[in-house]
Amino acid sequence: MVRRDFLKSTVKIFFLLISIISVSVFSIFTYPWKFKRKELTFFHATDEEALPIKGVRQVFIKHIRGNTQINSKAFIVNSGSELFALSPVCTHLGCLVNWYRPKNRFLCPCHGGQYDMNGKVVKGPPPADLNRMPIKIEDGKVYIGLRV
């Protein structure tokens, strides 16, 4: 019966191999290996005279992602000592935060995350501070860097 046993294990190994190959091909095929990596691009956001003296101003940046026209938002903050741009994307799970002037805080509507004027987490579940965006001022125009 050696022949029979050999045939049995051949069949088993054959089907095992087919399964392993199918599962691997499926996973490799499904994973998005070659999606477009994002590159830092500067967009004109506003003009220098419109910058806040002290406080927060939101600006909108129009750009194109794929075939879709997107109107992104960014906050330009002047804390008195420093001028910087903050991304409105909550670091928790990606909702957009609001600037709430009465409390001088950024509030996230989703799970109650709160950040102060510098983007530091002060309350709620976010694991990190709001991301800073690159900003540069040239010829009186303000540009904000977006990864698109």
């Binding site: 909108f60 997107i70 109107n71 992104s72 938002k73 409105p88 909702c95 957009l96 935060v97 609001n98 996230c108 509507p109 989703c110």
Partner: peptide, 9 residues
Amino acid sequence: IDFSTPYRP
């Protein structure tokens, strides 16, 4: 879809 207004889904 609005990519710039905070929204609570």
